[in-house]
């Protein structure tokens, strides 16, 4: 998927997500709000895939950046009257980047379980701050009164989520472009090298620690932007964007889709959020049960996530076709 031997050209299948998204825009107008949320979580999952799937940084704290971005946009709008959507995104990105570089510089000296616990600690701390600082964040009641000015002064956020959907789609496209370029670049190859053999990357002279801090910060920035988008679309921020739960949900989404495959971050949130939407309507109290079953099935029978198993089936299919052709001759 990355490296000096891979072909960086865009394959036809890579147009699929964008065509599906555009088709959904025209064909499913009553689901656009859900659609915008799916797009936001895809961007969020993409940022996680960059550090988990490529650099091998394991984290349960990615919601810290998502939540910080969400609250930055929300507080700026509700408390300080900054309603321009791009300025909100910019501020959220800057805040998340700052948190990313400072916490990353501390915790990326560790790895494996220690790292996992530290990331969890950081998002828990941010959650507790948001919970206690009621004068700023509204605490457990959440932050309402978020207003977002029309994009470029032209496109108002409408009730049906049309503007929100396209807005998020553009943001996701830019995020995808960035991540895709990055994983095919020397930087991406170097990250894969760190994941596969950290000792060797040290040996060839790579400043592993600084590279990890860098990619962690980039990923944090993306997560912060995703969080700000969520605030703008919902016009509300609640504590549920912080802490273990959204981090865990995100990890489940990425595992469902497939880690380290770029498009796993697309498939996972779609399946997860649609399943959640459906299950929550049918069984409002037990919808997590359905998600749990889904996760168990994927982990047991589809290593590499939904994309992993699809890959395997496609390969098996093409093998069969080839052998059938060979025997026909």
């Amino acid at each position: 998927m990355s490296g000096y031997t891979s072909d960086p050209r865009i394959r036809w299948a890579e147009f699929l997500p964008w065509m599906i998204a555009l088709a959904a825009f025209f064909l499913l107008p009553e689901y656009l709000s859900l659609g915008a949320r799916v797009l936001i979580y895809i961007l969020f999952a993409l940022s996680l895939d960059l550090i988990l799937g490529y650099a091998g940084i394991i984290t349960l704290g990615h919601s810290a950046f998502f939540g910080l971005g969400a609250y930055t946009a929300g507080v700026l709008s509700a408390k300080y009257g900054l309603t321009d959507p791009f300025l909100q995104l910019l501020a959220a990105a800057a805040a998340a980047a700052l948190l990313g570089i400072t916490t990353g510089a501390v915790i990326l000296r560790t790895k494996a379980l220690t790292l996992l616990m530290l990331t969890l600690a950081i998002t828990s701390i941010v959650l507790e701050i948001a919970n206690k600082a009621t004068w700023l964040t509204g605490g457990a009641d959440g932050l309402s009164g978020v207003t977002v000015a029309p994009i470029l002064g032209l496109f108002k956020f409408d009730l049906f989520g049309k503007t929100a959907f396209i807005y998020c789609l553009i943001a996701l496209f830019l995020g995808w472009l960035l991540v895709r370029r990055m994983i095919y670049s020397p930087f991406g190859a170097m990250l894969t090298g760190i994941r596969e053999n950290t000792a060797r990357m040290h040996a060839v002279g790579a400043p592993v620690y600084w590279r990890l801090v860098l990619v962690y910060t980039i990923s944090a920035t993306m997560a912060g932007i995703a969080g700000a988008l969520l605030t703008q679309v919902n016009q509300f921020v609640g504590l549920n964007v912080l802490g273990l739960e959204p981090s865990g949900d995100l990890l489940v989404m990425l595992i469902l889709g497939g880690v380290g495959r770029l498009y796993g971050a697309f498939v996972g949130p779609v399946v997860y959020l649609i399943a959640q939407d459906y299950l929550a309507k049918q069984y409002p109290e037990y919808w997590y049960f359905g998600i749990g079953v889904l996760l168990i099935v994927v982990v047991l029978f589809a290593r590499g996530g939904i994309l992993g198993i699809t890959d395997k089936w496609l390969q098996a299919l093409s093998r069969q076709i080839r052998s059938a052709r060979a025997s026909a001759r």
Binding site: S2, T5, P8, R181, P186, M190
Partner: peptide
């Protein structure tokens, strides 16, 4: 790439270097 300092480059595909 590490020796040449190319590893920090993030945009151009690696196989094009």
């Amino acid at each position: 790439a590490e020796r040449d300092g190319v590893s920090r480059r993030m945009w151009k595909p690696a196989s094009k270097h």
